[in-house]
Design a protein around this nucleic acid. Sequence first.
DNA 1: AATGAATGAGTATTCATTCAT
DNA 2: TATGAATGAATACTCATTCAT
Lengths: 213, 213, 213, 213
Amino acid sequence: MSELAKLFDETVAATDLSEKQKAVLKASLQLFAAKGFDNTSTADIAAAAHVSEGTVYKHFKTKDQLLAAVMRPFVRQVVPRVAGDFIARIQGQAAPDFATFLHYVIKDRLEFAQENRAEAKIFLGELMHDQAMLNMLLKDFQQVAQGPLTAIFQHYQATGEVVDWPVGELFRTFLGVMAGHAVPLILMPTNKFDLERAADEATAVLVQGLRPA
Amino acid sequence: MSELAKLFDETVAATDLSEKQKAVLKASLQLFAAKGFDNTSTADIAAAAHVSEGTVYKHFKTKDQLLAAVMRPFVRQVVPRVAGDFIARIQGQAAPDFATFLHYVIKDRLEFAQENRAEAKIFLGELMHDQAMLNMLLKDFQQVAQGPLTAIFQHYQATGEVVDWPVGELFRTFLGVMAGHAVPLILMPTNKFDLERAADEATAVLVQGLRPA
Amino acid sequence: MSELAKLFDETVAATDLSEKQKAVLKASLQLFAAKGFDNTSTADIAAAAHVSEGTVYKHFKTKDQLLAAVMRPFVRQVVPRVAGDFIARIQGQAAPDFATFLHYVIKDRLEFAQENRAEAKIFLGELMHDQAMLNMLLKDFQQVAQGPLTAIFQHYQATGEVVDWPVGELFRTFLGVMAGHAVPLILMPTNKFDLERAADEATAVLVQGLRPA
Amino acid sequence: MSELAKLFDETVAATDLSEKQKAVLKASLQLFAAKGFDNTSTADIAAAAHVSEGTVYKHFKTKDQLLAAVMRPFVRQVVPRVAGDFIARIQGQAAPDFATFLHYVIKDRLEFAQENRAEAKIFLGELMHDQAMLNMLLKDFQQVAQGPLTAIFQHYQATGEVVDWPVGELFRTFLGVMAGHAVPLILMPTNKFDLERAADEATAVLVQGLRPA
DNA sequence: AATGAATGAGTATTCATTCAT
DNA sequence: TATGAATGAATACTCATTCAT
């Protein structure tokens, strides 16, 4: 199980959620992913959770709160703490080369996507309409981009492994190449996905593509 | 104005749509883009188009048909005829080098995205929930990927400019890098976007990133 | 063609109805009979008559007027002038016996029903909801029952062929027995209906059934 | 109260219908009878039942289901079990004479009509448009006509009380004469109806009318 | 006379949400 | 805590009717 899934379960367990409330959350996750938030009624959720309609509203005051409860732990992890971990090592002497760094991060995020496919699907589906979610994401991105990520990329620019572009541009390319693998992984319900190979490929493209001319 | 935009306008003009019906289409486009299809009511559309609710349904028999009418010309052009044009030149002797090819295609598609921002936003927003749209898109992709695109990439593999990966993988990387520029362009309503520079950058990354090791 | 059908056509022809208006009437007749008045829209009628929606309203100001136009000649003939014709003969010396009288009337009305099946179906279908139609019918019935019919039945009571019940009761029995044949004739679209035999049977039942004990 | 009325009330009571839901049923019955199914809106029903429109749809999923719920117990009893009861006695030795049989059945059915005037009015009003209802009725008729009724009529044909016609013809005459009394009873909201006398009269007509010549 | 685009009130139905039990 | 009946506003869609051309 992924870190997020664990965290999510802990969140659920930690709070005073009864079994029924957990069932509500689980049903919401599945239905939102399968049919979209707007096309899922609270009656659907109640039925899927084997719970009365009133119960759905006992803990979660609105349908939107239900969405938030389902998505919050996921959104918080989309932009990971990975960066923070790495920063420490880089500032020490044992900094890995750019390829190793990329491979680690890409694989980590693809695993994350794979293990949280339902949440990711909801996320992609609502991103366009849910200003709150979009803002949460953008804020996280900016924080990471302006903070730890800048330090990391600057490190590899200093070693000559990465071209001298603004960090934002480097990040955009990184995200694009990764999304090329992540999006199909999320949308297509296939389990034949070769995660290692995808990470290899994306790493190869980025290492070469971002190398100084 | 983009090719599509023209085509779209012609479609509208060609059919015997009255001024009011055109207003309905225009209002639908704007509202779907702004609030999403599900969150736009036919009453909203009628109000925005300064038209009665009955009028909304006079020409377009269902709300779904309205969405289709708004999106069809766009979807048909997402995967462009560009490929076809190029094939001809490549099969002749005057084939451009890989960088030139990429730059042309990328710029063309980014311009397309820029000029059809509203449609593109709806498109992204509905893709997850609208199986029909997703299928249309996937079919188009497969057709292009298995047809002209294969020929093109194989050409550049023969010239030694492109690494010997399966065409699908090359295409995925190409789309990812381009999406890295297109998605922010579509989502952020800024006109400061430097299209030329984005095309340069994406081209640079891909030319290097896909070059044989 | 039945008397009514002729009269109906004359009504249509006589008035300043254009070909299109006649088509509207014909389409209304067919659709009202097939789907009922409430389930037929004026758009349906326009389409079936190959006419614009506006044209439907050019001559007939409301949908109800259309119904009235279709039904009026029928309703006026449901209770026939037959009675008047007969009165004359009875008051003369050449009065037929009760069986002959019944057979003539029953056959005449069954033929009428057969030839005006569509109108009859609408009539039955609307009778319950359309107070105006019901009233028209009841008034006609009362007029006939209190007028000519009374004279006729009293004649046969005087000859000893008919039991000494109030005319209303005799009429009710007569209508019931006839309806037993007419209703299936109207509802079932079969042409195997043996009208002569039905008239024989109904006559036999009534001659015996209404004979003084 | 009639058997059906009881059965109907039990049905309502048996199911877990709340007071409000019963009010919905009652209001539907009254409004459908008064204005017809098509001319009764769910808003009308909600208002008449002093209930919100949502409540109308809580138990009954569609307006058609409401109609079915109102009519089902009635339709099931239109063609009664009476036949079955009689069969037993006839097959025993104590068969009543034809007049007694007729009088019993006619009185029973007229009482039924009197006690279920509202349902009967809806029934007559929808029969023409509601294929399902018509089919239900026809099937019941055929079952009775081909089953118990045949046995009964054949019994009276054997005793020489009834003319040697096909059972279908006998049934048709029986229904016609009865309808002559039942229809006015259903349509006219008068309580002066002398049921005993009507049964006497109908019996007299049929006993004589169907006697062998 | 005929058209057909336009209207707006109306219709069945859904749904997030509340509340008495 | 859980229930599920009740709510009422909202929704997609229909339809009789009008009117400018």
